[in-house]
């Protein structure tokens, strides 16, 4: 019962964070800042959703697979972000910086 409630909360908060990240990629002004918004959906949102599902799965192969999905996302998303940012900068895309 407690586990059910906990996993619902995790799932819903995770999904809501996804939407926040989605708003972020439309609200932020340029590519580099949007990367940060995408970072939310790749880390905390994915973590919460997968954790919520794993609580439902209990100790089973499904939970292991969820853990593997998370590990893959967790290892690959920073690599992708970094490669993207590096390639963008390398090709001469200038970030909009704060002028203060």
């Amino acid at each position: 019962m407690i586990i059910d409630i906990l996993s619902s909360i995790l799932l819903l908060v995770g999904a809501a964070l996804g939407i926040v990240g989605g708003i972020g990629i439309h609200r932020f002004p340029d590519f580099y800042t949007r990367l940060h918004a995408i970072g939310i959906t790749d880390t905390l949102s994915a973590l919460m959703i997968l954790l919520g599902l794993a609580l439902q799965a209990g100790w089973s192969i499904a939970a292991f697979k969820l853990a593997m999905i998370f590990v893959f996302l967790f290892f690959t998303s920073p690599t992708a972000s970094h490669a993207l940012a590096y390639a963008a900068q390398h090709s001469g895309l200038k970030p909009k910086l704060d002028q203060k």
């Binding site: 580099y32 967790f74 970094h82 940012a85 590096y86």
Partner: peptide, 27 residues
Amino acid sequence: ANSITLTPGTVTIKLSEDSLTVHALSK
């Protein structure tokens, strides 16, 4: 560099011999 990229708000752009170039969302 990976830890910096994984924390939202900071992305490592370049890793060179003696420094890291980082794009940060806020001051």
